[in-house]
Design a protein around this nucleic acid. Structure first.
Lengths: 125, 125
DNA sequence: TCGTCATTTCGCAATAATCCGAAATGATTT
DNA sequence: AAATCATTTCGGATTATTGCGAAATGACGA
């Protein structure tokens, strides 16, 4: 109770202070994505992505929406969090990896979800 | 070269994502302080404070100014860094520890430097 | 109900961050 | 030059973060 706000700030900043998590946030600027779409775009184990998403969610930067067996994540509407994100976009927009992600994001959004998720299942086999 | 900006952002956020470092930045809002003043206010080993200061400096949030055997640190003038800090003040101002630090900062600023630093020397003995 | 699929949780190994005291550095004073 | 003082760097132990594969969970369809 003595340092609630300080702790909140630190937790929020920690959540942002990771390249993969910044890339996830940047990806979500163009709209919600399901976990398998993010996993495919960032090319990491789905368990890894899931943990990053969980961290971002706990810190209030993203929100989840369940739809059948899929879980979609989108940028949070919390004003403070949104404001903090806004100050990052200018930085991130110039980054090569973030740009590449955005391009891949456009592609993956055009593919039906069933296909994307099937592709992952095949990769695993 | 492929992800320079992303790396910069992550380094900056990592530098901010620590309670002691946020408290240091908040302290410096009221003007520059020398290392011994910060050390005394935050009650940590001077080597620890020094490492935190070094990290904040490398990340561009603070600048150093040497004067004799003292080293003063002040908030950086870099616009991006300053902007990121600005978005934190609203969060931090409500925090009890940060408020207490600010009060102690006012006190320590009134004391001549020689006295503050002597006090530390005594404490060590 | 059983199998399948997307996601999450768990266990664990590897890496990074944090803190301190001791030693090193640089500047000042005697 | 030697002693003193503020600060930094170093060595280390301790703790946190990260990433993966394997197992668990929950939802869907046969």
């Amino acid at each position: 109770m003595t340092n609630q706000t300080l702790r909140n700030s630190v937790d929020g900043l920690k959540a942002l202070a990771h390249p993969v998590r910044l890339r996830i946030l940047a990806l979500l600027r163009d709209g919600e994505l399901c976990v398998c779409q993010i996993t495919q775009t960032l090319e990491l184990a789905s368990s890894t992505i899931s943990e990053h998403l969980s961290l971002l969610r706990k810190a209030g930067f993203i929100e989840e929406r369940k739809e059948g067996k899929w879980v979609f994540y989108a940028l949070s509407e919390i004003p403070e969090r949104l404001a903090l994100c806004e100050s990052l976009w200018t930085w991130l927009e110039g980054d090569a990896a973030v740009k590449a992600d955005a391009r891949n994001g456009v592609k993956v959004r055009k593919i039906p979800l069933a296909v994307t998720c099937c592709a992952m299942a095949k990769k695993r086999a």
